[in-house]
Nucleic acid binder design. Sequence first.
DNA 1: CGTCGAACTAATGTGCACATTTTTTGATGC
DNA 2: GCATCAAAAAATGTGCACATTAGTTCGACG
Lengths: 238, 238
Amino acid sequence: MSERRQRTAKADPAADEAIYQAISTAILEGRLRAGTKLVEQTLAAAFGVSRERIRKVLQRLGAERRIEMVPNRGARVAQPSPGEIKAVYEAHRVLEAGVLVQLARILTDDILARLDAHLVEERAAAARGDRAASVRLSGAFHLHLVDALENEELSRFLRDLLSRSSVMVSVYEPATQSLCAVDEHGAIVEALRARDVAGAIDLSRHHFLHVEQRLKLELPPATAPDLAAIFGPAPLKP
Amino acid sequence: MSERRQRTAKADPAADEAIYQAISTAILEGRLRAGTKLVEQTLAAAFGVSRERIRKVLQRLGAERRIEMVPNRGARVAQPSPGEIKAVYEAHRVLEAGVLVQLARILTDDILARLDAHLVEERAAAARGDRAASVRLSGAFHLHLVDALENEELSRFLRDLLSRSSVMVSVYEPATQSLCAVDEHGAIVEALRARDVAGAIDLSRHHFLHVEQRLKLELPPATAPDLAAIFGPAPLKP
DNA sequence: CGTCGAACTAATGTGCACATTTTTTGATGC
DNA sequence: GCATCAAAAAATGTGCACATTAGTTCGACG
């Protein structure tokens, strides 16, 4: 009960993850606007940890292209250009085409059943107007497609793309988040069930084009220097 | 000319890259066997830099899955299981299927001309028996396919897969590296020229299956603890 | 009055010392 | 002789101090 603080943080691996999640969801939910400077010392004070801890988290976010890091100039929340956004969506579209080709080869009733179950869930969320769940499940549908291949590499890549496109949606369409029409998802599953690969790819392609169209590609300057009190005075020790 | 060493390394960004390249190529060329422990202090002494520099490089290699990092237990050269290797090749195959679908849509004479030029180069290397060039150009062919889409995300992902599969080849087939038959590459280009997407995908698929078959999937235990004198006493300051 | 420049401030990069954890070695008891 | 445990040695993780560099402000000169 002495005032003596222990010198080291006892090597707590959960703290890193907690800080990562906090910043990550703050970016996702738009509480940290695109272009906002992320000052290490400020974040360290906000979370009540040392600067090195923050530094590692920022490096990880930088590797995931969620934030942009310039040597000697710090880190900023990524502000993807319309071209980069287009590239991410195109990459997703191209990948899913390959996934559909392979999926048609190994398709089992079990996989179809899981996709159907997901569609039921997704339609239910849409029916009761649960927008948050709809957005989440909409992304999960595409994740289900790759996960069915049971390939860690492909799943990881898609997760990476999804996390980045989520940020983009929050950047370019803060209020009304675009979500995939459930009919389009259902149509893709039906084409798969009929082993119609070309049809499924076409549906997937138009599906993504719809999503891209729905994004209004206008750049809000929005580099308002927010204070890092977004995370509260001491979010880790409430 | 004084003996006084400056305290900091002047923030030399090239040093990090040099160390990264040195370790990277050492893994690639098999001088660092799979499973070899990479001790920070030993590497720091070998390169004549501080331990933190090494630490950053190892973290980068770990993010690329070139080495395996376990908390509190250090880093080892990645020793991918046969399952992981299969996953990487499958991921490459699935991705290339999607690439071929898109490539057929946007195909121009210019792209075909560049692919033809590459095939000429590749055949020349094979004809003169230049094994090293053949291996390099063989990987470059697949890189040319994605690069034709001019999508940074897809190119990055393929580069990642290629660097990992290169390691695997050096692990599982140290002496006679398998290389893609140039005829198969040429056949893919011909199918593309005829806009035969299904045919191109089939050719690509069988092409990868051939490569996979050529890899003898036997695990050499090979965790011989090599000394880090592989890099010489002071490779950065010869 | 505007512009260039130098000092000042603030933020990032890095080496170092120390704590913690893991691994090895040696000794003792069964 | 082998297994178990403890102590030592080694290796990793982390906070801190300081150097370096970008950004800012104030002053002087054209």
